[in-house]
Design a protein around this nucleic acid. Structure first.
Length: 172
DNA sequence: CCCTGATTCGC
DNA sequence: GCGAATCAGG
């Protein structure tokens, strides 16, 4: 893969939107996150307006002497565009209690827990691959929550997908 | 261990 | 210029 103008443009866009290097690499396809980072540096695009996904505050090894001006804003518009795009950390704790007491709700009526709405290209070996929505629809996505290494789904979806025969019987 | 970006350096 | 390897860190 080579860096065509189009790809560079997309890289610039996604990077400025705060997506991580690995996510950008996934969307561009054909490149590793290292390639993306390397390119970003060569383009001198480092340092984004404080929109690093979950990682941490990278200490900048003073490059020149940039001073943050503290502007005293009146009670006017103090919007500081902090658009947070991408799959940001949003840990969800599923209630996987084996409570199957009275009756099991049919899969169709189960409310899907908070998903990360990942695109196909963003799935990894440990993200839940439970699909949400119509594959032909624009907003089709995957759960994306942690799926451990025991299977293709997160704890919640694993239960929905692999219902014991006994439970399925009872729920009918 | 998972992930993040930063840097180096052979190609 | 490119990006894998490596480093530093949460």
């Amino acid at each position: 893969m080579n860096w065509t103008d189009e790809r560079v443009e997309l890289l610039r866009k996604l990077w400025s939107e705060g997506l991580s290097a690995s996510q950008i690499a996934a969307q561009l396809g054909g490149v590793s996150r290292n390639a993306v980072i390397g390119k970003v540096h060569r383009l001198k695009l480092s340092g984004r307006g404080r929109a690093t996904a979950s990682p941490a505050r990278q200490k900048k090894a003073v490059q020149g002497s940039s001073v943050q001006k503290s502007v005293s804003r009146a009670a006017s518009t103090q919007r500081h565009v902090t658009t947070s795009i991408g799959a940001n950390a949003l840990q969800v704790q599923f209630d996987a209690e084996p409570v199957a007491r009275h009756y099991i709700r049919p899969v169709e009526n189960v409310v899907v827990p908070i998903s990360r709405h990942l695109q196909l290209v963003e799935l990894t070996e440990r993200t839940c691959k439970w699909p949400n929505g119509d594959p032909l629809s624009e907003d089709f996505n995957f759960c994306g929550n942690d799926a451990a290494e025991t299977g293709p789904y997160c704890k919640y979806h694993a239960r929905v997908a692999f219902q014991p025969a006994a439970e399925r019987r009872r729920s009918r």
